[in-house]
């Protein structure tokens, strides 16, 4: 897949506090990437760097389109402005330099699509959070962006509003708009994202591709008289190897409970269980299909 944007070794520090550290990944054309991670893991900072709103302390961002990449941004907390929806959207359209005729048609189209036609002349400071979030997305898609950047698009919305917005994002997915979004909701990951990137303390911890199997790595030790043969026979184990007197087992997530139980039943001790990065897994040269190691 051709990349629309590529981040290379991006780091960001605020007052000597490291927020992002050596982040490298790319977003493909028509791809939807979900960025997950705990609060304070650097997700929003990363999105704002992608938008060009803040500069990274180090690293480079490559826009791979022949033209200038048009990026639209849906921030997490849209302000309660005292403008009406109509005034606001027309202003944002004019500022972008959209043609008046196109803009009027587009604003009407979006009002209908998002169900805000009735309140188009009401000031937004009287809007609910769900209505504000709709305006937030509308401003970002007034003209079709190459990349849509969404910061917690479903955050704080009730179930109905979440479903409405999910439907709208799926419609945008059909229009082949590339997206990167931070989210906590599994519904976005399951139904929308092609790929998930996990950030922990400013570092990329895990890439996983939706529809692909996810894996975990189990580090364990067995008594010397116990064979690993049975463990190797568990389904979903493509790799079992001996490392410094202990074992490293890579197993499909859905078979991990079975593997852990078997290790414990063999009087083994578990040292660690960690999700395995998909790309690392694929390029690993040490893949040995399950079997007796020793």
């Amino acid at each position: 897949m051709e990349d629309i944007i590529r981040l290379e070794h991006i780091s960001k520090e605020y007052d000597q506090r490291v927020v992002l550290q050596d982040v490298t990944f790319s977003i493909g054309i028509k791809e939807i990437v979900a960025l997950i991670g705990a609060n304070g893991s650097g997700k929003s900072t990363l999105l704002r760097i992608i938008c060009g709103l803040i500069r990274p302390s180090s690293g480079k961002i490559h826009n791979n389109l022949a033209k200038e990449t048009k990026i639209s941004y849906v921030p997490e907390r849209f302000p309660k402005l005292r403008l009406t929806t109509q005034e606001y959207l027309l202003s944002m359209g004019k500022i972008q330099g959209l043609h008046k005729k196109f803009m009027n048609r587009r604003v009407k189209e979006l009002m209908d699509q998002f169900g805000l036609t009735e309140v188009r002349d009401r000031r937004m400071n009287f809007f609910s959070k769900g209505m504000l979030q709709k305006v937030n997305i509308m401003q970002a898609v007034l003209s079709q962006p190459d990349l849509l950047v969404l910061d917690e698009p479903l955050s704080g919305l009730d179930a109905t509003s979440q479903q409405d917005l999910l439907g709208l994002l799926q419609e945008m997915k059909q229009q082949d708009i590339s997206m990167i979004m931070t989210c906590h909701e599994s519904v976005l990951l399951d139904e929308l994202a092609n790929r998930t990137i996990s950030l922990q303390q400013g570092r990329v911890q895990l890439h996983s591709i939706q529809g692909q199997k996810s894996y975990v790595t189990i580090h364990f030790k067995l008594p010397s008289n116990v064979s690993t043969f049975d463990i190797g026979q568990i389904g979903g184990v493509p790799n079992l190897e001996k490392v410094d007197g202990a074992y490293r087992l890579q197993v499909e997530s859905e078979f991990s409970d079975e593997a852990l139980l078997m290790i414990l039943n063999c009087n083994g001790s578990i040292w660690s269980v960690t999700p395995t990065e998909y790309k690392e897994w694929i390029i690993s040269e040490s893949i040995t299909i399950a079997g007796e190691v020793e």
Binding site: L53, E68, P75, R77, F78, M92, Q96, Q139
Partner: peptide, 14 residues
């Protein structure tokens, strides 16, 4: 203008 809206305006204006 709220800092968030300022960022939106800046992006639209380019």
């Amino acid at each position: 203008e709220s800092p968030v809206q300022e960022e939106i305006t800046l992006l639209h204006l380019r």
